[in-house]
Amino acid sequence: MPSDNLLALYVHWPFCVSKCPYCDFNSHVRAEVDQQAWAAALLADLAHEARELPSRRLGSVFFGGGTPSLMPPATVAAILSAAERHWGFDDGIEITLEANPSSVEAARFADLAAAGVNRASLGLQSLADAALQFLGRAHSVAEGLAALDVAQAVFARVSFDLIYALPGQTLAAWSHELEQALARGTEHLSLYQLTIEPGTRFATDAAAGRLTIPDGDAAADLFEATRATTAAAGLPAYETSNHARPGAESRHNLAYWRYRDYAGIGPGAHGRRGGLATQRRRKPENWLAAVARNGHGIELEEPLDPHTRATEALLMGLRLREGVDLTRIAQLAGGTAPIDDAAVVRLEGQGFVAREAQRLRVTEAGALLLDAILPLVVKDRVAA
């Protein structure tokens, strides 16, 4: 079956159990949720997408958002059953659920696995208690590692994430933490440098001078050490911040980076289907009311012009070690791939990108400078 026929499904569960200092979903904290109403609404939203995307097969499902591991397993099972009925599952379908590594959530892992989840993505975020406190996490290192043990016992595949380039973090400290992480025997790691998002407590502290993260040179040293250490351990970077054993890459996230169609349901969920961009209403109550009124929670549905589609595909695909197929990019653009050939030649001469036949990729040397390289490579719409 052609890969273009495969579809990814993202299910957004917006509710958090506690506030955190580095995201903007704190308005979604809820003490109680009408689970029956939410299950029915998610199934209705799903059915709408299935009508818009017929004759497809699901290659992956991802339950993400606030605290999706606190979704009732019966709701997870109902969504998966409906998704399989609407589309059918591809062989080896990947069904991922994000989870916080708390003992409360770990106690639910077996039931979630029984409901059909076969991959867990755990938000460990750090293997240092002081760092977890700084990040506003409720779990301790011991609790997080205990949850990881449970996840590895019940799910076929497990990934976890860590955040580095924290205030005061040295290269030696991060290298030690990364070695500890690799010793846990995981097949996939997501390793992110700390970023300061506008409107968060971190942004306020940084503006007031109370928070200083490693500067450019120090951050570069941490980035390069991360890639060297994971590669030596057999988990090379296949995307800017994601590392996996060959064959264990996130099938769902690859659908995004390879610019394949994906359906997004639930509050705030985005999607791409057939050249259309979709966005659900973000506020939970507004989304719920929209589903009751319209049979779906869509707030925005707009066509993407060829240049935008090709540009999105370039920006996503160049994050991957494999790079992009320029023939496909040109097809999306309806003619010529929107790349700046002069900039590519210059960057190729500097060793930052490589063009081999119809593939363009960012080299290992260029990965460190990706944010600076992307706007140089992609040709502006006016100049196209």
Rank of each mutant, 00 (worst) to 15 (best):
P2A: 04
S3N: 05
S3A: 13
D4Q: 14
N5R: 15
A8V: 03
A8D: 09
Y10Q: 03
F15C: 02
V17N: 13
V17M: 13
K19N: 09
K19T: 02
P21I: 07
C23D: 14
S27V: 04
Q35G: 09
A37I: 05
A41S: 14
D45S: 02
E52N: 10
P54M: 09
R56S: 05
L58K: 09
G66D: 10
G66W: 06
L70Q: 15
M71A: 09
P72F: 03
P73S: 03
V76A: 14
V76Y: 11
R85T: 07
W87I: 05
D90A: 15
E94H: 06
S103Y: 02
E105D: 09
F109R: 03
A110G: 13
D111H: 12
N118W: 05
L122Q: 04
L127S: 08
Q133T: 13
L135P: 08
H139Q: 12
S140T: 15
S140F: 06
S140I: 09
V141S: 05
L145A: 02
A147V: 01
A147E: 11
L148E: 04
V150R: 14
V150D: 05
V154A: 10
F155G: 07
F155W: 10
S159R: 00
S159K: 02
D161T: 08
D161L: 04
I163N: 10
A165L: 01
P167G: 08
G168Q: 08
A173W: 09
S175L: 05
E177T: 13
E177L: 03
E177D: 15
L178R: 07
L182V: 07
T186C: 12
T186M: 06
H188Q: 00
S190P: 15
S190T: 15
S190I: 12
Q193P: 13
T195N: 14
T195G: 08
E197D: 14
P198Q: 11
G199V: 00
R201C: 12
R201W: 01
A203F: 03
A203D: 14
A208W: 08
R210T: 05
L211T: 05
G216D: 15
G216R: 14
A219G: 11
F223K: 05
A228T: 08
A228P: 06
A231R: 08
L235T: 04
A237T: 04
E239M: 01
E239L: 09
T240E: 02
T240I: 15
S241C: 05
A244Q: 09
A244N: 08
R245H: 05
H252G: 13
R260P: 06
Y262A: 06
I265V: 15
G266F: 03
R273E: 00
G275W: 07
L276A: 07
R282Y: 10
K283R: 14
P284A: 01
N286H: 14
W287E: 07
A289F: 01
R293Y: 12
G295F: 11
E312F: 01
E312C: 01
A313Q: 06
M316I: 06
L318E: 03
L320W: 06
L320I: 05
R321S: 13
V324F: 11
L326I: 14
R328D: 11
A330K: 05
A330P: 05
A330F: 01
P338F: 08
D340T: 04
D341W: 06
V345A: 15
R346W: 07
E348H: 12
L360F: 09
G366F: 08
L368R: 13
D371M: 00
D371R: 00
A372I: 02
L374Y: 10
P375A: 03
P375K: 06
V382F: 15
